[in-house]
Structure formats: structure tokens, C-alpha cells
Design a protein around this nucleic acid. Sequence first.
RNA 1: GCCUGGGUAGCUCAGUCGGUAGAGCAACGCAUUCGUAAUGCGUAGGUCGGGAGUUCGAAUCUCCCCUCAGGCUCCA
Length: 657
Amino acid sequence: MVEVTLPDGTAKSLDSGATGADLAAAIGARLAKAALVVKVDGRLTDLSTALPNGATVEIVTAASADGLDVLRHSTAHVLAQAVLRLWPGAKYAIGPTITDGFYYDFELPNGARFSDDDLERVADEMRAIMREDQPFIREEHTIDQGLAIFAEQPFKSEIIRAVGTAATEEDLREVGDGGAVSTYRNSESFTDLCRGPHVPSTSRLGFFKLMRVAGAYWRGDEKRPQLQRIYGTAWDSKEALELHLYRLEEAERRDHRKLGQELDLFSFPTEIGPGLAVFHPKGGTLRRLMEDYSRQRHVDGGYEFVTSPHITKAELFETSGHLQWFADGMYPPMELDEGQRYYLKPMNCPFHVLIFKARQRSYRELPLRLFEFGSVYRYEKSGVVHGLTRVRGMTQDDSHIFCTREQMNDELTSLLEFVLDLLREFGLNDFYLELSTRPPAKAVGSDEEWAEAEATLESVARAAGLELVLDEGGGAFYGPKISVQARDAIGRTHQMSTIQLDFQQPKRFEATYIGPDNQRHRPIMIHRALFGSVERFIAILIEHYAGALPTWLSPEQVRVLSVRDDHDDYAFEVASLLRADGARVVVEPASEPLGARIRKAKMEKIPYVLVVGDDDVTSGTIGINARGSNDPERGVSLDDFRHRFANEVASHGRPEE
RNA sequence: GCCUGGGUAGCUCAGUCGGUAGAGCAACGCAUUCGUAAUGCGUAGGUCGGGAGUUCGAAUCUCCCCUCAGGCUCCA
């Protein structure tokens, strides 16, 4: 007999040798059917494993995150089996789960590659394997046996050889640790190296979709062979799968590139070049509004406004160290004046250091906060540019704060407050912080300096009271950083502002100030971009709001429509009164049917459509059709609307709220 | 940079076997004067991403380049 404890605390006695499957059956038929794996003392295990006496055991179904993860991992195995059936001689590498799904990497014989059409064939083969109801049979081997089993499989062999020596997190996921390797056999012809656990049989799978093929470097190293990767998603029901696909479509509808086109905000003319955007009048208005607001807040926050040129001699970036680390990411230099090399600037900071150094500085001037909307150019690799979020030319709302070591903590604390407050004004409310520490390979500065900088940032971040995530080794070469991450309306997270602490640039540029002791001292420099880049921030706002921007940011806030053309004069009158209040208003006279003009305005996501007809002309009122509302208001007094509108603009609200 | 798939009118897309290009929307013109998501008719609009090649003939087949999308690598 074995006795186990269930999660609710009840004890259950079973025959000795009883498995997770037996336990599930003893609890109930429905559970037995839904069971995928068991959690024994917190460790996920196959249903077929005998339960140890005295264990705490939880039956895991697809209703839990663990269960779904197992389901996806098992589906990845089926994918591998299908590919090996269709491409005899294919080599298979790793097939982990990822958010909402899984992938598997392969090397096909004779350099063959997957095409999109192959996905359907592979999926059909997978369904066949699922119909065959193949069991997942766990087997354990010594390392030598493992190497023998996978003698023909170089990627598997490499993973096995790494066991106990240089195994990565990913390897362990595949094989487990402890000097032995485990495999899962589905049939005589297919065995995969895997730590498990797995669902009992392939028949338990089925609600999946292969999404796309992609190239992926073996072990993520671009110097190693590029494998063929297939991405898939898998769920426990048809409904869950369809809901997931629907969510993907929803995200597509919010895509800022699509909305930017539809709303006539910006474009990327091919004549200009990849990753280089032009903003159209409406997008330009949006930018102006954002920048104006930001400028005002910076004035209030005690910042000094500076500007710097777009190009500079190489020497500046040699001194800063950027050329040493990031020459690949910079546009190549132009040679001028007998071999003098000039670069487009990828960063604003060295310029701001030079402004600091332009004259002798006193401790009385610190903290000195320099701010600039600085345009920078970075030569991003051709495959990485992406809409407005990854561009080759962008404008950073960049500032550099020079302060003393003693001021550092307070300055960072108020800075973080400043940043979060401003982001909230743009409608982002759900934040967490990420602390990026010293990068392992490229970093300058002493261990002590890094330790102090990291400790300072960490204490400031903790004091902010937000969730804090560690990003080990993610810092810049000159210092660690805190980044503010924001969750958008559909739950995606975006890296927003970064705050970086830098002891190195002041040293490299030999920046000093005179302290109260009449001695020279080295200032600390804090780098900080709030929007990150204006372009990227616009992209995030567009996606967050699905194009329906808050009224204060809408390029066109109000459109006035006359019912008949003899109401046009009144429409223009209403518009000019609203304009006098500072509103951005367009009148569309009655040349088309009212319904058509309403529709057009709605599709342009204009916050307020005002309709004026006979009744309004006689009584000085308007009809209001607010964005997001299904029932238009009639006979509203113009003054009422002006107040309502002014309040909404001032509070940065939206008509939907 | 690498892998896969795209690029046809301003936008979204169709175009069979290689035979010289089409729709809807938008634009423009005329008519229509209308109370809350598409009024009707008409006109104009294309070196089919660019270049080379094969062919009597190329949007269509081949090669090179540009560019976009999804990944990988990278992101000061």
C-alpha cells in the first residue's frame, strides 16, 4: 500500500506500485480522462510513474499552466516525428515550449528547407500520428547509451555530451541532470531525447496550428549552422485555439504600421530608405503635441534645454567608447578635410558632456539637467527594422543629469517619479521595473563602481514600490540601468523609459566640477530617455489605443457636419467658436449624404462628430456623436459641449471613458 | 547579415497554360440636399518594385538587386 496526500489535504490509499493514472482513476472518471501528468512533491512526472509512499500528489490537467506546457511540449515531439517521417535523414535539434506554443529546430537532408506549403503536409502527418494513439514511453540511459542511440543525430549528441559539464538551462530541459539521460519513445522509429514529462499518448493532443517557418541559429549563435524552425501553437480545446487565433488577429488590427497608413500619420517612402520615416500632417501634429507637453513638463522639472549637431568628428565617439563597442551599429563615416572622419551621431550623451565641460562648473550648479529632443541615426541590420519601433533614424527625448555622488540617490528617486508620472499622463498605468546589471563581455569601469551603481539603482527601484525584475547582464557598457516596462491595453509589455547610471563618461571626458572644498571632483552622469524614442512611443500609443487616441492627442478632435447645405454657415460658425477655444476642428459641408460623412469620420477615429441641422440652427445647439458611443445626443447646447470638451482635453481623457 | 514568404492603380486585392491589365474603395467631375457608419452616374489613374536574361511574345519563366512581413542574431 502507498498513501499519498492530495492538494486539498485529504489522504488517499492505493495499491503499492500505483501510478498517477491509477490515482486519477480512483478520484474520478472525469479527472482520469483529463489527467495529463502528475505533480509529485512539486515535481512534474509522467502519469505512468509509480507514486512514492507519503508524497503530496496533484493531478495536472490542461486547465493549469503546467498542464498546457506539457501538452505543448508533447505536441513539439509529434512535430519532430512528423518531420522525420516526411524527410528521412532529417536531423532534429531542440523543441521547447514558448508562450502560447512551441517550436522545433531541424536540419533537413541535402540542405532542404521548409516552405510555407510544407506546414500543411507536416500538420497532416502530425494528425495521423495523433490518431495512431502512440504512447510516450520514458526510458533512462547512461550517457554512453544515449550517445549510441543518437549516433546519427549530431545536435542530440552535442546536448548529451554537455550533460554534467556545460549544460545550459535549455539542455537540461531536454535531458534532465544527474549524469543520466532520459528519452521518450513514441514508436519503434521515433525516440526523442527529453527530460519530460509527457502526456500519456499522442491521442491526447490535437488542438494545434503550425504558424510559420523561420531560420534560427543552432544554440542562438550566428557563427553556427542555421537550422529550420517551425513555430506552432497548441491548446486543450478547439475553443481555446480559436480564441488564441482571434487574439492574434486583434493584435494585427492594432498594428501601428497598418493604423499609421489608415489614419494618414506617417510612411516609409522607399526612396528615402529602410527604417527612415516621414510624418504626415496628422502624425506631425501628434508628435508636436507630445513634444510640447514633454517640453513643458521638463521646464517644470528644472531641465535646461540644449541642442547638438547631427554629425561629429570620430574623436568624440572614440573618447566615449561607442566606436569601440558599436561601430557596427553606426553609419559609416564620411571623410572630410584631408581625412577627418565625421560620423552621424548614434547617441546624444557625449555632446551633453561637452556642454557640461564648456566652462568651469561649480557644485552649486548641480544637479545640472540637460535636455534635448535629439535626432540620432543607427545603422540597424537590414533584417531588424520594424515599423516605428526599430528604425534607423529617430528622435530621443534625451536628458543627461550631472550630479554629485551624494545627490545621486535623491536625483534618481525623483527622476523615477517624474518618468512614471509623465507616462501616466499618456494613459499608461500598469508598470513594472527591470534592473539591468553589468554585461559580462563588454563593460568598462571597476568592480567597485559597478557594485555601487547597481546597489544604488536597486535601492531606488525598490523604494518605488513597483514589481522589480532582474535582467542579469543587460546593462550598457558604461553602467547599469533601470527600465520602466509598461503593459498595454491587450497585456503586452513594452520597454519604455530607461534610466542609466554612468560613472564612465565623465571620467573618459575628464569632466569635473569644483566642490565646496575648492577641489576638482568627478560628477556622476545619469542618462535618461523617457519616451525612449518619440517614434517608438508613438507606435506604442497607437497600439495601446488601437488608433483611438485620447482627445488631447488627436490630430483632428472635432468634425462638424451640416445636415443640409443651408446649415453649412452654422457649421462653420460652430467650428470657429471651438477653434477659439483651441480645438482642432474640421467642417465637412453637405456634399455627400450625412451617413457617408459620419462613417468616414468614424473610420478616422475622430473623438467628436458634431451634426448640425434645422433644430440646431434655430436653437443654437449641436448634435454630438462621440467616438465609441452608439447613441448620438441631440440638442446639446454649444456651451455645454465646450465645457465638456475642455475638461476632457485638460484631464487627458477620452470620449470612451 | 541569415532563413521563409511577399511587392500589380493612392489603399485592399484578382489576374488560368507565357499572348500586352481588372475590381472595390479613395480621387476628380456632374447630378443629388439628406438628422447619425457607404446616393447615383461618369472620368481619370499602372514602365505589374528595379535591372538583366530566355522567348516571336514576360505581371507570369531564370538570375541579380531594392524593399516589406514573420523569425534568428543584434539593440549603446
